[in-house]
Amino acid sequence: MRALASLEGLEGRVRALAAAFVQSGLVRLRLSRGADDAIEFRRRASSAAPRVPEAAVFSANGAPERLYDVIHADLVGIARFSRPAPAAGLALESDRELASVEALGIRTPVRSLGPGRIVSVLFDDGAPVEYGQPLFEIDRE
């Protein structure tokens, strides 16, 4: 129980840190304690405006930290899965089309931008999506 309580406290502190990072305009923030406790927030360097960190995985017990690439929608439209339908766990051997966003009758492909493994699919097939909406999390390692 004590461990759980301490984990909850930790989660609150991480959330506060994440909020501060989003506000800060920093591109990368890494904090470490000793050899095996570390946390890192990162965002795409090209984005001028503050936005949600790409992904942050906290490793409190020395497990290797994992950073996931997030693929966002870059226009407003209806997002549809490409075939074969992308799903969590799917390994991508190379760059491939994962989905498309249809806007004003024009279909714009959403690509994986390289190999990796889909960690999560963040929208429903046929759902409306907005600019900047996260669509996929990809593990590049």
Binding site: S47, A48, A49, L75, V76, G77, I78, A103, L104, P128, E130, Y131, G132, Q133
Partner: peptide, 25 residues
């Protein structure tokens, strides 16, 4: 719906994203 980043040319003047928002909603 978010239609673009901060600069107006890419958001509040982004006619394709604004019209698309109207159509999908």
């Amino acid at each position: 719906f978010c239609v673009g980043p901060g600069p107006v040319a890419r958001s509040y003047l982004n006619i394709p994203n604004i019209i698309s928002t109207a159509l999908i909603t």
